[in-house]
């Protein structure tokens, strides 16, 4: 950037795009560069699509919740961090939805899938769609979802689907940061003041029964494992539980007890009352102008 005292801006519509022009980056670099995006021979496209859709919807819906923190965060550093995490998840969602649209043969792109499905067609876990609550509830939820997703993505780097493997490889470093960020806040709030401890304990107590759905193994996930592109849920769940208990211990929080697998509600399209309004907001402009290009 010149510091000379005149403006030589190139015409705005011809300027090159580049990640280095952003303060923090957008994750716009193509992680699929050089990856063969053809379906693996013999793979069940519908099963792969269902799996990618579930993981993509988790990321998209949580990114939407994180975006709702924007201008409400407790400190400017948290504004930056929460936006950063939201951007990472949005990037993961875009790749996974795109893959789902390829694999199911429908040719639907990321926007078609994000903006023109109704709530019962979404496959995210309910934990992602719950309202943010206070900062303690939001960080407890973020810890759970990022710890679970990191345990999963660490294993998906070996997926039989090269696209899923590439998405996971990129996602692992992102999710490690998300988990670290959330864990640090759970510890700070658990250890901090009486008030923060009380709020964090309440958040953990409220979170615990919701984790059963994460531990549930849906038909989609079972099929993915059978087909060789999914990760073994038992190993994922074991790592996830260990991380959760380790963080609670470091934070001085009471362990709410055993974690039991629940029913796979969201993976079947059975959502809470909170998803439809979230989608109404997200899809409002796109649906008001279905013929438009953005």
């Amino acid at each position: 950037m010149t510091t000379e005292d005149h403006l030589h801006l190139p015409p705005a519509d011809t300027a090159p795009e580049g990640d280095d022009r952003w303060a923090f980056g957008t994750g716009f670099t193509d992680p699929l560069h050089g990856v063969d995006t053809a379906l693996p021979p013999g793979a069940d496209g519908a099963a792969l699509a269902a799996y990618c859709l579930a993981l993509g919807d988790d990321a998209l819906v949580l990114a939407q919740r994180l975006a709702q923190w924007c201008t409400h965060a407790p400190e400017l550093e948290e504004e930056v961090a929460l936006a950063n995490i939201g951007l990472d998840l949005l990037g993961q969602a875009r790749l996974l939805l795109t893959r789902a649209g390829q694999a199911d043969g429908s040719g639907r792109d990321e926007d078609r899938l994000a903006y023109f499905r109704d709530a019962p067609e979404f496959r995210n876990v309910l934990l992602a769609e719950l309202p943010n609550g206070d900062f303690a509830h939001s960080t407890a939820r973020l810890l759970a979802l990022s710890a679970w997703r990191l345990a999963l993505f660490g294993r998906l780097t070996g997926s039989a689907d090269p696209v899923l493997a590439a998405v996971a490889a990129k996602g692992v470093s992102e999710l490690a940061y998300h988990r670290e960020y959330a864990a640090q806040w759970v510890v700070r709030l658990g250890d901090g003041t009486d008030e923060s401890h009380r709020r964090m304990q309440e958040a953990v107590d409220a979170l615990w029964p919701r984790l059963g759905e994460l531990l549930a193994v849906s038909a989609t996930e079972r099929r993915a494992v059978d087909e060789g592109f999914g990760a073994d849920p038992a190993a994922v769940n074991e790592e996830f539980e260990a991380v959760m208990r380790q963080v609670l211990d470091a934070a001085g929080l009471r362990d709410p007890g055993p974690l039991l697998p629940g029913e796979p509600a969201g993976r079947l399209g059975a959502h809470s009352e909170y998803l439809a309004p979230l989608l109404d907001e997200m899809q409002s402009v796109a649906r008001a102008h279905p013929e438009a290009t953005w």
Binding site: W22, G25, V80, D111, Y115, E281, A286, H289, W294
Partner: peptide
């Protein structure tokens, strides 16, 4: 941000507000 009509525009806007 929550209403951006494409996922690319949503990412661009979120990144801008983050900046």
């Amino acid at each position: 941000i929550t209403r951006a009509p494409s996922l690319r525009r949503k990412a661009v806007l979120l990144a801008k507000v983050q900046d």
